[in-house]
Computed example of a mutant assay.
Amino acid sequence: MKIEIKDLTKSYGDQKALNSISLTIDKHEIIGLLGPNGAGKSTLMKIISGVLKSPEDSIRYDGVGFNQNPEFIKSRIGFLPENNPLYSDMYVKEYLGFVANLQKVSKDQIDLFIDRVGISPEKNKKIHQLSKGYKQRVGLAAAILHQPELLILDEPTNGLDPNQILEIRNLIREIGQEKTVILSTHILQEVEALCTRVILIHQGRILQDTSIESFKGKYSSLEEAFKDYTS
């Protein structure tokens, strides 16, 4: 799915969370969305995913405005928010069946996605019994169950241990071979490991939209570049 954003502005009262954002995301790109806390990253992802309403004609999905066919566009988007809202008293397979029903997807596919994200040994456990890494996998399975063309991930490895981080990264890399992925993270090594392009947002504006190599430029690391751009 190709995303085109033009002059997107979003305010909360007198505060502008996003200020005249314009960008294009092509099919099968893995985009790293960077910025300090409060930069506007989560607001941008919620608007792209349809969780927050966007101004008329500010975003087009494969040339179609969101308000022209919102249900169809939402059906092509998968979103894993930072807080990963799961029903902890449900069994893993039961929860994914619930999501499949909401997404109008055949429940016959559930085991396929359980295998794909590596939670087969845990599928008959209640979600509250799972480690955080497995909970993230359940959230990821729910986000891709309807086979979206665009996958939006907000801090998908936050709070995971090093082994879990590597496992989730490998899953994202695999998914990115067939989908457009927007990844927001504070872990700059994650962007370097996964993304082909970085978009840096600060105070609601895009400061950089370029390749990893160009973003680093003269700096010895992404961390050094990030600090300089946002200080």
Rank of each mutant, 00 (worst) to 15 (best):
D89E: 14
V117G: 08
P55Y: 12
R76Y: 02
Y61T: 04
K93L: 10
M90F: 15
P70L: 09
V117M: 11
D89A: 06
S75D: 09
E82W: 06
S49P: 10
M45K: 00
D57Y: 14
L112A: 08
K123E: 14
D62M: 07
S106F: 13
I77M: 11
K107C: 04
V99C: 07
S106Q: 06
V64Q: 15
S54N: 15
F72G: 03
L102S: 07
I114M: 08
I110C: 05
N124H: 12
Q68A: 09
I119F: 00
Y61P: 01
A39H: 02
A100I: 06
Q109A: 06
F113L: 12
F79A: 07
D89M: 05
G50A: 06
P70K: 05
D62Y: 13
E71H: 10
M45F: 01
D57M: 06
K93V: 09
A100Q: 07
K104F: 03
A39K: 02
V105W: 01
L80I: 07
V117W: 01
G65Q: 02
Y87A: 03
I114G: 02
G63M: 11
M45L: 15
N84V: 15
S49V: 04
I110E: 05
S88R: 15
D111G: 05
P85F: 11
K104V: 07
E94Q: 15
I119W: 00
D115V: 07
S120N: 09
Q103S: 12
S120I: 04
G118H: 11
P85C: 12
F66S: 04
M90W: 11
M90H: 09
V64F: 03
E71N: 12
L52Y: 15
Y87N: 04
N84Y: 08
D57K: 13
G65R: 03
P55E: 13
F113Y: 14
N83K: 11
T43Q: 10
P55Q: 09
S58K: 12
Y91I: 02
K104H: 14
R76H: 15
L102K: 07
K53Q: 14
D108W: 11
S120Q: 15
E122G: 04
G78V: 02
G78M: 05
S120E: 13
R116S: 13
I114R: 01
L44N: 04
G40D: 03
K74C: 03
G50C: 05
